[in-house]
Nucleic acid binder design. Structure first.
Length: 498
RNA sequence: GCCCCAUUCGUCUAGCGGCCUAGGACGUGGCCCUCUCAAGGCCAAAACAGGAGUUCGAGUCUCCUAUGGGGCACCA
């Protein structure tokens, strides 16, 4: 058992800056962060940019934007700084080179001069790198080096025996050492590979719990051997399950067009897509935390603070999960329902403005409560309630197709609208409940059904077949505007009649 | 090909040898409520991958098979 001495918990998320932040990476980061917060430790962001070919400028900014949006706060990182920086690997090259050299000098690693062609040949034959430079003499190595030949530094993996790894999530995992290759630690360009870099950094940054995706499990024994060769106290390890595509086939990819749902809505996988799709960060966090881990008590909805009270890496489910995206829509609507009106106003206002409406704050405040149970996404505000914010003076009478309800005709609709005007006008209060009472009575008196009366008014006043409740809507519009619109509707019907 | 990991309703999950005639949630269907759309309430269908063991007793432990995921780069 690898039982590190008690040290303050420090976890990290160490992405490669290769583009927009993927939700799978965020989930791994989230688990590391929750664990750190659970144990009063620190959460570190480290950028692993040792592959110069894959580095995409601007990636770090996108990563930080994702974390900020979700409220996952970082204690140490390239932006935050910290006592163990720099937090970008390309700025730590010397460190890796020092330790690579140390490993060579101590007989744990060696210089390998194999060319790309040689390697390709070996691969073709099968079995991978044949360790041809592992045991050549010091003199021969010196000679090759003197010729100026490029070389890499490879780790001397034990040829026999087994390496046992202790994983927090699944317990002991055994590997036959002969299965492992002599991995490259330092590339010929002087940059380290992941294998060397992450260990050197995790050690120097005092990481106590290494969390990473399950695809790293096969190289776990390699890492254990490197830690041992370096003589450093190992952290604990947790290999996290990953998100699979919604159909359970393959790792969740960015090519998600094929997973468009029935409405043709594509599945969001990049953090900025969640932002743009109108999801609340708290809902996204709740959603992610509930995959591969659960709060317990049959509670599906819980805050991040609650999760922090209970989160443990050992409770993480070891199996990968299909991406249960449909649940996010439900969670999001639940969060919108429970959201604070003022906060919701703040989120909705820019969306309405972007749709071309100019938003009156006071009016928005009155409309939002009508919308809370109806919005799945923040963007639903536009089709549902955009009419509240359009220029009222420019309101155009709805077409008869909109005005005439199912099982209603032109005459009846006109009849209802015409009769409602004086009744509405005489109301002393235009509160929804008062209107409701008056119009119910009107329906009863005329023999129409409530739905026919209310529905006709809705269409007249909103120009839509679907809207928030009619009288709440008219209350916001006000008596004058409501009646004006009903008259407009009447004209629309009448003109067509003639 | 070799190695590793995993496997409970369609999906996310609870379950850590008897509390399981397997619980919750999403989704689906039905009913109720209802001025539309929602929300809400109630109900229903729906799972321990298969086979051997171990045990008085297995969803829970072991092994095999199957299936799924992943690894075998001078990528992470």
């Amino acid at each position: 058992m690898n039982q590190p001495s008690a040290r303050p918990v420090r976890t990290r998320y160490a992405p490669s800056p290769t583009g927009p932040q993927h939700i799978g990476g965020i989930r791994s980061a989230l688990f590391a962060w929750l664990y750190a917060r659970r144990h009063g430790g620190q959460f570190i962001l480290r950028i692993e940019d040792t592959d110069r070919k894959r580095t995409v400028p601007g990636s770090v900014e996108m990563i930080l934007e994702a974390f900020d949006w979700l409220g996952i706060d970082i204690d140490e990182g390239p932006r935050e700084g910290g006592a163990f920086g720099p937090y970008v690997q390309s700025e730590r090259l010397e460190l890796y080179q020092t330790w690579a050299k140390w490993l060579v000098e101590n007989g744990c690693a060696y210089k390998c001069f194999a060319t790309a062609e040689e390697l390709a040949e070996m691969r073709k034959v099968g079995g991978g790198y044949d360790r041809r430079y592992r045991d050549i003499s010091a003199a021969a190595t010196a000679d090759l080096e003197a010729q100026g030949l490029p070389y890499v530094i490879r780790f001397k993996m034990p040829l026999t025996g087994v390496t046992v790894g202790e994983d927090l999530i699944r317990g002991e995992v055994e590997f036959a050492n002969e299965q492992l290759q002599d991995a490259v630690l330092l590339k010929s360009d002087g940059y380290p590979t992941y294998h060397l870099a992450h260990i050197v950094d995790d050690y120097h940054m005092r990481i106590t719990h290494v969390t990473r995706a399950i695809e790293w499990l096969p190289s776990f024994p390699l890492h254990i051997q490197i830690w041992n060769a370096l003589g450093w106290e190992k952290p604990q390890f947790a290999h996290l399950p990953v998100l699979l595509n919604p159909n359970g086939k393959g790792k969740l990819s960015k090519r998600k067009e094929q997973f468009a749902d029935a409405d043709g809505k594509s599945v969001p996988v990049l953090v900025h897509e969640f932002m743009e799709a109108g999801y609340l960060p708290a809902a996204v966090l709740n959603f992610l935390t509930n995959i591969g881990w659960n709060y317990g008590d049959n509670e599906e909805i819980f805050s991040t603070a609650q999760a922090i009270e209970r989160f443990e890496l050992k409770d993480v489910n070891p199996a990968n999960s299909a991406y249960p995206i449909a649940k996010l829509d439900w969670l999001n609507s639940q969060y919108i329902q429970r959201a604070d009106v003022a906060a919701l106003c703040q989120l909705l206002k820019p969306i309405l403005e972007q749709a071309g409406f100019s938003v009156d704050g006071a009016r928005l405040r009155r409309v939002v409560p009508l919308l809370q149970v109806r919005l799945k996404s923040l963007h639903d505000v536009v089709p549902m309630a955009g009419f509240f914010f359009a220029d009222w003076a420019a309101f155009e009478a709805p077409s008869p197709e909109i005005l005439i309800q199912r099982k209603m005709d032109r005459e009846g609709t006109a009849d209802i609208l015409r009769g409602s005007i004086p009744l509405l006008r005489q109301l002393e209060s235009f509160e929804a409940e008062i209107q409701h009472a008056a119009m119910s009575e009107y329906a009863k008196a005329t023999g129409y059904k409530n739905g026919q009366v209310f529905g006709s008014l809705r269409a007249a006043v909103t120009g839509q077949k679907v809207s928030p409740p009619t009288f709440e809507t008219m209350e916001v519009l006000g008596k004058e505007e409501s009646i004006r619109r009903i008259e407009l509707a009447l004209r629309s019907l009448g003109n067509d009649c003639a």
